[in-house]
Write a protein that binds this DNA or RNA. Structure first.
Length: 413
DNA sequence: GCGATCAGAT
DNA sequence: CACATCTGATCGC
């Protein structure tokens, strides 16, 4: 029977209340202007932006969750059918404007749903979030951690956004006579644009809808839709291509910058090929020596500016919280796998629990993550050939899982 | 005809 | 190869 209490980033029916971590499109699949399944909890910034994405949404269904304090929800226990109270605290997820993680406490125990997040040592937001989490958990164990496992593989090593932003400014400074275009999405990377603007004392062009988002979020007046005012333009990522750059270069010398992308993963694969063999005694620091910006094309620079945490940050986060159990919130075709594949040894209590489940998980993994590159993660694992045979036959199932997207229903009966 | 869902491209 | 998003096709009402 499907009768849950709480859904996070999941919009099929059957829950009493619904939580949204942030407003990126892949987390709102199933939400629409005609929503009427129940109350929707989100951050203040997310609530502000809501009407731009869902114009006719019934705003009386939205509840703003303030960061850093416990809120109580009166719900019905799916087990007993009687009233029960659930407590929730929101923490800044440091992913995009308005993004939150949610810490829940109730009859089901204590669980944290991170949503997409970044966890940089150097970040003040992270420092605040760390304190909030530790205070909120105090002497209580975290039963389940729903984790952003987007980059949960040692191959994913990249610098803080602060470092990446400096690299981008360096690239711009190295092209004083060029126009610059930067590919961004409809939400996110605002801090990068602010940093560029402040450092170079220059305005940033954005497209009109994006300017409206900036205004709604209360960013300083450094964004403009007037092309003549600046040589730096932030453009929708989908309109950013080799063809675009080649076309622009027939008019004016122009370079494109892509914050995020693949070169760091390719390099990291080479650099870390054997890393897992010794990784249990070794920490994975973000690679500071590697010059990470890469010229992937005559006019295009790709810089590892990521709004998701890297592998080393995942490790730190798990060591901090020592959850009993971890579940990844992202399923991917090939390059990441279930977090406890790497971090089982860092989980709280109940080693027997893990031993028991490891066998099941290994079998399950073949089905869920059929195309994972075993060689680059655990060299020398036996029966690799057997796993590879499974690879093809599970591709369809993996892609189904992938389409199912993010989100979870908590405390199903 | 419209929204929801999916496949494919970027 | 990753993410997040757009376009266009298809499905269901």
């Amino acid at each position: 029977m499907e009768s849950g209490m709480i859904s996070v980033d999941k919009w099929s029916s059957g829950s009493q209340v619904y939580f949204l971590t942030h407003l990126h499109a892949d987390h709102t699949v199933g939400l629409s202007s005609t929503w009427r399944r129940g109350l929707l909890y989100c951050s203040r910034d997310t609530a502000k932006l809501f009407p731009t994405k869902f114009p006719d949404f019934n705003l009386s269904l939205i509840r703003v969750v303030e960061i850093g304090c416990w809120h109580s929800l009166s719900l019905v226990s799916p087990n007993s059918g009687s009233a029960t109270t659930v407590y929730v605290m929101a923490i800044d997820a440091n992913h995009c404007p308005g993004s939150l993680m949610y810490l829940f406490r109730g009859e089901f125990g204590c669980m944290l749903y991170t949503g997409d997040f970044r966890w940089e040592k150097s970040s003040n937001t992270v420092e605040v979030g760390r304190t909030m989490l530790l205070n909120a958990l105090k002497n209580e164990k975290l039963d389940i951690l729903y984790l952003d496992n987007t980059y949960c593989n040692p191959r994913f090593s990249f610098p803080s956004r602060e470092v990446a932003a400096r690299e981008i400014v360096d690239i711009i400074n190295a092209h004083p006579e060029h126009d610059i275009i930067i590919g961004i999405d409809s939400l996110g990377k605002e801090d990068l644009l602010l940093y560029i603007s402040r450092t170079l004392n220059i305005k940033i062009w954005v497209w009109p809808e994006r300017l409206q988002v900036m205004h709604l979020l209360g960013f300083p007046d450094i964004f403009t839709t007037k092309t003549a005012l600046t040589r730096v333009r932030a453009v929708p990522r989908y309109s950013f291509s080799v063809e675009t750059l080649e076309c622009l270069n027939t008019l004016r010398p122009t370079i494109g910058i892509r914050p995020s992308g693949l070169p760091w993963s390719m390099k990291a694969v080479k650099a870390n090929e054997n890393v897992f063999g010794s990784s249990r005694s070794q920490t994975h620091e973000p690679n500071r020596d590697l010059r990470s910006a890469e010229r992937s094309h005559e006019y295009i620079y790709t810089v590892p500016y990521s709004d998701h945490l890297c592998f080393a940050e995942i490790q730190e986060f798990i060591e901090l919280l020592q959850p009993v159990k971890i579940k990844g919130i992202v399923s991917s075709l090939s390059s990441n796998i279930e977090p406890y594949y790497f971090f089982r040894h860092l989980c709280g209590t109940k080693q027997a629990f893990w031993r028991l489940h490891q066998k099941l998980d290994n079998e399950e993994k073949l089905e869920k993550v059929g195309t994972v590159d075993i060689k680059s993660t655990i060299p020398g694992t036996s029966s690799v050939a057997g796993r590879k045979r499974k690879k093809v036959q599970f591709v369809n199932r993996v892609s189904l899982l992938r389409k199912s997207g993010h989100g979870v229903r908590i405390a199903d009966s």
